[in-house]
C-alpha cells in the first residue's frame, strides 16, 4: 500500500515537470521577457535600458533555458526556466504585477472559495443521487420520462443563465439576498446561499442523467435478479444492492474533484463578488497578470494530481475487490 502511494507520488513528478514546461513555453517562450517588459512599460518612449532594468527587477535577465556563459552546472541552473521552476515547486509564486505576494493572496482567498464550492459539491452530489435513484425507482413510467426530459432540458441551459436569472430574480426583484459581496463569519451565509443554490441547480441536469445511466446499468445485472428472487422489495433491492454498486463509480469519480474545489468557480465568484480564487484568477486573466495565471495553473495541476491519488485510494475504501 505505502509502496503504491510512494510510486504514485513519484509518478506525479514528471507530470508536474511537464505542466511546468508547458506553462513555461506559453509564458516565456511565445511571450518573451522583452515582450513582457514592453507590454508593462507601454509601447511608447521605451528605451532598451528601461527594458533591461525591468527584466533585472523581475529576475528575467537570464537566458531562457541554457546559459552558455555560466560555469559548470550553472549552465542549466542559472536560467529563467530553472529558477522559475524551482520557485514553483517550492510554492514560491512571487509577486503579482501590483506588487502583492501571490502566495499569501492564494492562502487568503481559499476560504471563501471553499465556502461556496464545498456545499455545492456535497449538496449537489446528494441531490443528483436522490433524483437519479427516484427516476430509476420509477423507471419506465411517465415520472421517469418526465424526469429524463427535464434533466436534458436543464443541462441544455447555459450556466450563465442560471447565474444571471438567479441573481435577477432573488437579488434584484425579490431582494432576498444582497446582489453581491462577501463578509466573513456567520454573515457570510446570506452572501453564499444564492451562489450555492445556483451551483446545485446548474449541475442537477447532467448529474442526474449521468447517475441514472449508472444505476440503470447496474440494475440490469444478474445479482439484482438474485436479490429479487430472495423476495426483497424493490426499494430494498435498490438501496441495498444497486446503490452500493452504483456508488463506486460515482464516489470515485467525485473524489477527483475534491482537491480542485479549492480553485473556486470563476464565473460564480466574479458575478457575486466573492473574494475567492476564482475571481482572483478571472481578474488576473482580464488584467493579463501572467504571474498569477501561471501560479494558478501550477496549483490546479498539483491539486488535480492529488485528486487522482485520492481516487485510487478511495477505490480501496469503497470497493472490496480493490486492494493494494
Amino acid at each position: 500500500m505505502s509502496a503504491y502511494i510512494l510510486r504514485r507520488i513519484l509518478y506525479a513528478i514528471p507530470i508536474l515537470i511537464g505542466v511546468n514546461l508547458l506553462t513555461f513555453t506559453l509564458f516565456f517562450v511565445v511571450n518573451s521577457p522583452d515582450d513582457m517588459a514592453r507590454a508593462h512599460l507601454g509601447t511608447k518612449y521605451v528605451t532598451p535600458a528601461m527594458i533591461q532594468a525591468w527584466k533585472r527587477e523581475h529576475g528575467y535577465d537570464k537566458p531562457l533555458l541554457y546559459n552558455s556563459s555560466a560555469p559548470g552546472l550553472g549552465r542549466v541552473t542559472d536560467t529563467i526556466f530553472f529558477t522559475q521552476s524551482v520557485d514553483m515547486f517550492a510554492f514560491r509564486f512571487g509577486r503579482s504585477d501590483d506588487g502583492r505576494d501571490i502566495g499569501r493572496d492564494i492562502r487568503a482567498r481559499m476560504g471563501p472559495s471553499l465556502e461556496i464550492q464545498l456545499p455545492v459539491f456535497v449538496i449537489g452530489l446528494a441531490t443528483n443521487i436522490t433524483f437519479a435513484l427516484l427516476t430509476v425507482f420509477f423507471r419506465a413510467t411517465y415520472l421517469d420520462l418526465a424526469g429524463t426530459v427535464l434533466s436534458v432540458a436543464l443541462m441544455s441551459i447555459s450556466g450563465l443563465f442560471y447565474i444571471i436569472a438567479g441573481q435577477y430574480l432573488f437579488a434584484i426583484v425579490l431582494r432576498l439576498v444582497p446582489i453581491s459581496g462577501y463578509a466573513g463569519g456567520v454573515e457570510s451565509f446570506k452572501f453564499v446561499a444564492l451562489p450555492v443554490a445556483i451551483g446545485v441547480v446548474a449541475g442537477v441536469g447532467s448529474g442526474t442523467r449521468w447517475y441514472r445511466t449508472l444505476f440503470l446499468e447496474e440494475s440490469g445485472k444478474d445479482y439484482v435478479r438474485t436479490a429479487r428472487a430472495k423476495g426483497l422489495s424493490e426499494a430494498q433491492v435498490l438501496f441495498r444492492h444497486v446503490l452500493r454498486n452504483g456508488m463506486i463509480p460515482i464516489l470515485t469519480g467525485a473524489v477527483v474533484v475534491i482537491p480542485t474545489l479549492f480553485m473556486g468557480s470563476l464565473i460564480m465568484e466574479s458575478f457575486f463578488g466573492i473574494p475567492g480564487l476564482g475571481s482572483y484568477t478571472i481578474d488576473a486573466i482580464q488584467s493579463q497578470d501572467f504571474g498569477i495565471v501561471r501560479a494558478m495553473v501550477f496549483l490546479g495541476s498539483v491539486l488535480y494530481i492529488v485528486g487522482l491519488l485520492l481516487t485510487d485510494l478511495s477505490y480501496t475504501l469503497f470497493d472490496p475487490r480493490v486492494r493494494f
Binding site: Y223, A227, H241, R244, I248, R321
Partner: peptide, 8 residues
C-alpha cells in the same frame, strides 16, 4: 460469477 452481489 455474476449472480452474487460483488460488494456484499
Amino acid at each position: 460469477m455474476t449472480s452474487l452481489n460483488p460488494v456484499m
